[in-house]
Amino acid sequence: MVRDRNLAVDIIIYGVLTLIAILCVAPILNTLALSFSSRIAAVSGKVFFLPVDFNLASYREVLKDHAFFRAFGVSVERVVLGAAINFIISVLMAYPLSKSRRIFPGRNIYMWLLIFTMLFQGGLIPLYMTINTYGLLDSIWALVLPTAVPVFNIILLVNFFKGIPKELEEAASIDGAGPWKILFYVYIPTSVPVLATITLFSVVFHWDSFFDGMIYMQHPENWPLQTYIQQVVVNANQMNNVTDPSEIKRLMAVSNQTLNAAKVFLSMIPILVFYPFLQRYFVSGIVLGSVKE
């Protein structure tokens, strides 16, 4: 790399980047500070990035909230089940689809089915009616089965599998390994970064989803955490049932900011904990997956 550094320019560059990074996390820090502040300090607008009148009242209140923990449990169940199903389906579909049409006639028919379902959907109402007909309302399966085939992840994985040297498969085949053994002992061990990437995407997707929980779960005890937060924190603020503008403005002013901030922050902790471990995988995973022969 060429180096003709200019101190003034460097200061500007590093300064701008630092500022952007701070702006990016500032809202999260503000929420954290609010959750540890007193309600009076929050209402009077004194809280920036440090708690004012530090106290744990909001968290104590969340601890007493059974609905919050039940929703947390539903979300954990959904993530484990959903990500496991996504993983199995992705690996099983990506391997045959990574074969050329010469080796696997019919490959393109499957591929077109996948692409078609990704590009064209029946829409909200028909899907809702279908789930209803299957009797899946209020069942965890309504959250994990319609999302079981992650087409984007599969395409990423197909592209990666295509790049694995054919010699590896041939050698295993000569030693008598069938397709299942080749998949499990050759392909999976050589694809750890990209598998970590798609698993990250699945976990985040399932943890972050709220809308399916909102429409398919009719009883609040079945809500996953994001749906619970949506209903309790966000929807309570939207007042879609209230039409009088002055009433909306009045309600917006009295919302319980500190308690909401505590709930919002707690619900993002799993992502924050999980993030650093997988962060180093996903960039390399995406770049590797998009490289084609």
């Binding site: 503000n30 937060i229 924190v233 900011q257 919002v264």
Partner: peptide, 21 residues
């Protein structure tokens, strides 16, 4: 990081930040 947080969470944050106080 914000890419990995849901719109529910980000909206909860935004509603707090953009409120009158």
């Amino acid at each position: 990081l914000p890419h990995f947080l849901s719109w529910v969470i980000l909206s909860g944050i935004l509603i707090n930040m953009l409120s009158v106080n």
